[in-house]
């Protein structure tokens, strides 16, 4: 399983890195697809005015990236905690099974 998982993770990393390599000559901006959709809206309906604006916006790119990393860190932390608990449980059980079988043999 470990080998398969590492191979899968390697493919994911390659899929994320390949675009940077393909566009290494600076032809791409790597902006958000959401923004491109927004531009398309203005293209289709040049007169459209958003009727509501965000009640709060991160004041800078730095603050936005802070909150995005916070989002990812919270999620990753919880997943790590979860698998930590579960794998510890597995180890304990294995150990218990082993001592049991040793005890049986001794008896």
């Amino acid at each position: 399983m470990l080998k398969q998982n590492l191979a899968l993770l390697a493919i994911v990393a390659a899929l994320a890195a390949a675009p940077l390599f393909i566009h290494r000559n600076g032809g791409a901006e790597f902006g958000g697809a959401d923004n491109r959709a927004q531009n398309l809206i203005t293209e289709i309906r040049p007169d459209y005015q958003p009727w509501f604006t965000p009640i709060w916006e991160p004041p800078s790119g730095e603050v936005a990236s802070l909150l995005f990393s916070l989002q990812a860190a919270l999620g990753a932390g919880l997943i790590g905690f979860y698998f930590g608990r579960r794998s510890a449980r597995g180890d304990r059980q294995e150990k218990a099974d082993k001592t049991k079988s040793v005890a049986k043999r001794a008896a």
């Binding site: 675009p19 901006e29 697809a33 491109r36 995005f68 990812a72 919270l74 990753a76 997943i79």
Partner: peptide, 27 residues
């Protein structure tokens, strides 16, 4: 319960990751 929390956390992580794509945009 813990698995439910971990599944929610997975949505948290993945939807925070803006990844470059071959089109030269990120999503």
């Amino acid at each position: 319960k813990m698995l439910l929390a971990a599944s929610g956390a997975y949505v948290f992580v993945l939807s925070a990751l803006k990844i470059p794509s071959v089109t030269g945009s990120c999503s």
